[in-house]
Design a protein around this nucleic acid. Structure first.
Length: 896
DNA sequence: GTATTCACG
DNA sequence: ACGTACGTGAATACA
């Protein structure tokens, strides 16, 4: 059988790898200070390109370390000179690249006096002679000269994992040249990157023309005297020696004397132990996780030698039976895992569950009628039996669907992992467990994703998958709690996040009642207006086009109508609102487009979008709050997002008319914190001027205007001053920059800068805090909220100005936004407890960052109002009062 | 899958 | 000199 020989151009690929991930250079550093971007990309290359090839022989060729001492350097002193110095961040990765090659089961080779090309050239001819199929992988087009019917040259394009295949036929098609002519083309043109010249004034085009006519360099010079008189002819004759020197420089050696032969290059697959050690030393968490998980699933074949069988460390997983359940029912502590076939646990099908602990073992089943069994029901509802799981909120809702109330949760690994590190959190058990050195196959690998989702037909495989997850959860608890304690986050977890997850679960299960007919009627009215606008737009444009396409709209406005280009995106013209608003006075079509956009958005996202997710069983919308997603501690809301229902425009706000109480004679009640972020800022900075404004319950933006514009205490503040001051306050909360403020206010950067300076003079402690929090971030690498919620800022010390600046603004914003999030979370837990304690029927439905929405019987309104507002404004004790405003009405429209 | 736009706090 | 305001999710177009 034909053997496969793989030859890799190490230097050119490593170089590509380094620059492919150059943007991430600052982020990819080991604790020891080693940059790993090229290593990561090179590893991806080896895994995704080399591994699947399964060659019989494989070699990575490297340039000799002393680059100049090749015959090419002797031939031309300036060969490859004038190149930029190799960055140290790249150089330091070289030794590890070679180790990586070995660990992946390939061989390294380099030889004094030779470049990687020459090694590859020589071995490719040897392989060809031996009848092998030869594959060369490189980032350098020069190697295409080696292509033959048996030798394919693969060149990476864009990074190192996308590849273009060069066969002689493809080279002919693409360049119009044979592989040998590629050398002669360079003889004529020279090579700027290797810094040697060709014939004067001959470039790509001329060379191609000459080679088409004369085929090769020798033939060209044999006939050069017959050429018509021209400057080019003179140049060719004058530079004949230069051309032949360039030809030699460009020719890859194919008969070098190497101290290895093909037989030394046998490839037997990756060396698992070596890879594990390397990945550990390089802190390649995800590669390590993948590797170990791979072993666990048992997908390893002979290509992996001495695989340590980690799966032996897991208990066997048995099918649940009565006897086992009886034992489990007596246990104090258990881990539980339930798998579903989709993310949305309100509607997903439950696939299987596993339960157990290290003493009793792990048991699983695909039969959910087990949850009709009283022993299991009692276990789920018993607060004394401590459960360890992943995503308590999800499990609560799933149990709720089975008419059970989950109790006794002690350890929710998803919450804990989020609190420990929001940055690395992906809400996936397998990757989070890997951070603790515990390796599991990922659900995506086990089930597949999207259209390829498939539950293995072998139940035992499924039982193992779930059982191992349960066992991982059981084992992770102590170590994870220990880290929580080190972060001083134990209270944050026990007193805030864990109780909150049940409050949220109840809110989600409760749902928000929706009048579908109101949405439908709005939809019809919108449709009419939208088609009218569409007609008018087509009329003015003089043609029909897709108004939703920014590309087509851009062509119309900026090419056909020649309107001025205000802003560009990376793919073309920007047609965003601020651009269109600026253009509107110049062309009447633009205001029509703006109106069309607004209405189309309302129709598609809100009318159609919401109608599509109304639960037909109860005419309610059940969102999911993501509790472990945002970097600041806020919640987010999906499927649908009920935290961005329109409010700012009347047209959009009407959507809220469709959100109603779930019972007749009930009301929607909303309570929101007034200026919570600025109050938090005043409290944590302790700035006396800002605190005073809040303690005296002044209009904060007006007071800011007085301070910044030097007005007297009783002087009236004009609207413009107040607007400016408000923008400055916003800017302060976002981590101010003069650029951002100037853009927002449409003023010069100089003016913006002077506003900020005056602001900091008037509120000196705010300035002091801003400086201090940045310094702390630089020192610690993270910032914290009032409840010790932590946000790491991996780019706080980046060399790249943009990335570093962004991290610094984040350092200022996160403690403010995050502390506000802490406060409303505490309030939610307390409100929930108080409503229960008072025996009220009112239900909390939504949280929108600084606002809570309830439904309650009309008769309860006054009591609920007092209870909610008082709990909210006393949720935490700050040196600044919290203020709560409230509204009530028959629909959500009126309750804000 | 990425980019753009726009809805909210 | 650098060139961005902070935090989200969903719809649509387009490759």
């Amino acid at each position: 059988m034909t053997k496969k020989l793989l030859l890799i151009d190490g230097n050119s690929l490593a170089f590509r790898a380094f620059y492919a991930m150059y943007q991430q250079l600052d982020r990819m550093v080991t604790p020891e200070g080693l940059h790993t971007n090229a290593l990561v990309a090179f590893n991806n290359f080896l895994e995704s390109i080399v591994l699947p090839m399964q060659p019989d022989f494989a070699l990575v060729a490297w340039d000799a370390k002393s680059g100049k001492e090749t015959f090419r350097g002797d031939l031309y002193a300036d060969y490859k000179s004038g190149r930029d110095k190799t960055p140290v961040e790249f150089k330091e990765q070289f030794p590890y690249l070679r180790e990586m090659v070995l660990a992946h089961g390939l061989h390294n080779y380099e030889q004094n006096g030779l470049e990687a090309d020459d090694i590859i050239g020589t071995l490719s001819r040897e392989g060809e002679k031996a009848g092998d199929d030869v594959i060369i992988i490189t980032g350098d087009q020069d190697l295409t000269q080696l292509a033959t019917d048996k030798v394919t040259v693969k060149i990476t394009k864009k990074g190192v994992t996308q590849i273009e295949e060069y066969t002689p036929a493809y080279i002919q098609e693409k360049f119009g040249l044979t592989p040998a002519q590629i050398i002669d083309k360079k003889a004529l043109t020279g090579d700027t990157s290797d810094n040697y010249p060709g014939v004067t004034k001959v470039g790509e085009k001329t060379a191609l023309k000459l080679l088409t006519e004369y085929h090769d360099l020798d033939n060209l010079y044999a006939h050069v005297d017959d050429m018509k008189k021209s400057k080019m002819k003179e140049n060719l004759i004058a530079d004949k020696e230069v051309a032949y020197r360039a030809q030699k420089l460009a020719t890859i050696i194919t008969d070098a004397d190497l101290s290895i032969s093909l037989d030394d290059l046998a490839y037997n697959g990756p060396k698992t132990k070596g890879l594990v050690e390397l990945f550990e030393s390089l802190h390649f968490k995800s590669a390590l996780a993948k590797l170990k998980a791979h072993q666990l699933v048992g997908q390893d074949d002979t290509s992996v030698e001495d695989a340590e069988s980690q799966s032996a460390n897991f208990h066997p997983v048995k099918e649940l039976d009565e006897a086992a359940l009886a034992d489990l029912a007596k246990a104090d502590t258990l881990a539980i895992q339930i798998d579903t076939d989709a993310d949305n646990y309100h509607t997903a099908d439950m696939l299987a569950f596993a339960i157990g602990n290290d003493d009793l073992g792990y048991f699983a089943s695909r039969d959910f009628t087990w949850f009709e069994n009283q022993t299991l029901r009692d276990l789920i509802e018993n607060p004394e039996q401590k459960l360890r799981l992943f995503n308590a909120k999800e499990v609560w809702v799933l149990m709720h669907r089975l008419d059970l109330t989950l109790a006794g949760v002690d350890f929710d690994f998803m919450l804990v992992a989020y609190l420990l590190d929001t940055v690395g959190n992906d809400n996936v058990l397998s990757t989070l467990a890997a951070r603790f050195g515990l390796y599991l196959p990922a659900d995506e690998d086990f089930y597949g994703k999207g259209a390829k989702f498939f539950v293995p037909t072998d139940d035992q495989e499924v039982f193992d998958h779930l059982g191992h997850k349960a066992e991982a959860l059981y084992g992770l608890r102590d170590k994870a709690f220990e880290e929580l304690a080190e972060h001083k986050q134990t209270d944050l977890y026990h007193d805030i996040e864990l109780p909150l997850s049940f409050v949220l679960a109840k809110m989600e299960a409760q749902g928000f009642a929706v009048k579908e007919d109101r949405l439908e009627k709005m939809g019809q009215e919108l449709d009419e207006k939208i088609s009218q606008l569409k007609e008018e737009i087509y009329q003015i444009a003089g043609e029909e086009f897709n108004i939703n396409s920014t590309k087509q709209l851009g062509t119309l406005l900026f090419e056909k109508m020649n309107l001025p280009v205000i802003k560009k995106t990376k793919t073309g013209y920007s047609t965003a609102v601020e651009v269109l608003e600026e253009l509107a006075p110049q062309a009447p079509i633009v205001s029509h487009i703006l109106e069309y956009r607004q209405l189309a958005k309302i129709k598609s996202t809100y009318v159609d979008g919401l109608l599509a997710v109304v639960d037909q069983a109860d005419q309610k919308i059940h969102t999911r709050f993501l509790q472990t997603l945002t970097q600041t501690g806020r919640l987010s809301s999906v499927d649908p997002n009920l935290q961005n229902i329109p409010m700012r425009t009347e047209e959009g706000r009407k959507i809220r008319h469709a959100f109603v109480p779930s019972h007749p004679n009930w009301l929607i009640f909303g309570a929101d914190y007034s200026q919570i972020e600025l109050r938090v800022l005043a409290a944590i900075t302790g700035d006396p001027n800002m605190k005073k404004a809040f303690m005296e319950d002044e209009d904060i933006h007006a007071e800011t205007a007085r301070a910044v514009f030097g007005l007297k205490a009783d002087e009236p503040v004009d609207a413009n001053h107040r607007r400016t001051a408000k923008a400055v306050n916003f800017g302060i909360v976002y981590g101010i920059s003069d650029f951002g403020l100037s853009k927002n206010l449409g003023i010069s950067r100089k003016d913006a800068k002077s506003f900020i300076e005056t602001y900091f003079k008037e509120f000196p402690k705010i300035h002091g805090w801003m400086e201090q929090i940045k310094e702390q971030a630089h020192k610690d690498g993270f910032v914290e909220t009032i409840e010790h919620r932590r946000r790491y800022l991996p780019e706080i010390n980046a060399k790249n100005f943009n990335r570093r600046s962004f991290a610094e603004r984040t350092a200022m914003n996160s403690p403010i936004q995050g502390s506000a999030a802490d406060i409303i979370k505490i309030a939610m837990i307390k409100v929930d407890q108080a409503l229960t304690k008072e025996g009220l029927q009112a239900k909390m439905l939504l949280q929108v960052h600084d606002e809570l929405v309830f439904e309650c019987p009309k008769e309860e309104l006054e009591q609920v109002r007092k209870l909610v507002t008082s709990v909210m404004d006393s949720a935490v004790s700050l040196s600044v009062p919290l203020k709560v405003e409230d509204h009530a009405g028959p629909t959500w429209y009126e309750a804000k």
